[in-house]
Amino acid sequence: MSARDARLAFAIVAPPAAWTFQLLAVYLLVSLACAKHVVVPLGTQAAGAAAALVALAALATALGARDEGDGPRRFLSRAAALAAALFLGGIVLGSLPGVLVAGCA
């Protein structure tokens, strides 16, 4: 796999992976806090921030590659940019409950 294809693969795979990570991490952290009284300070916020950074990096990578390579690769980088923007939005939405809804301290 060439470096360019590796970047493209990162741009495609990273945003959904980051979004999934945030979802599961928050679910686990909140459950730990509410059911087992194990509180990880700023855990959900950290998970959200890390996921957002990864998605942002992927978005930048995809946008940077949108005019590179042959037809299918250009298509994939444009598609990856759209998906990255969507998942980035999803990660932002997913970090709101930590702000607006009380957890179990």
Binding site: V26, V30, S31, A33, C34, A35, L93, P97, G98, A102
Partner: peptide, 10 residues
């Protein structure tokens, strides 16, 4: 817990 529900709601 409601906070966890919020993430799935999002």
């Amino acid at each position: 817990a409601a906070q966890a529900l919020g993430v799935f709601s999002a």
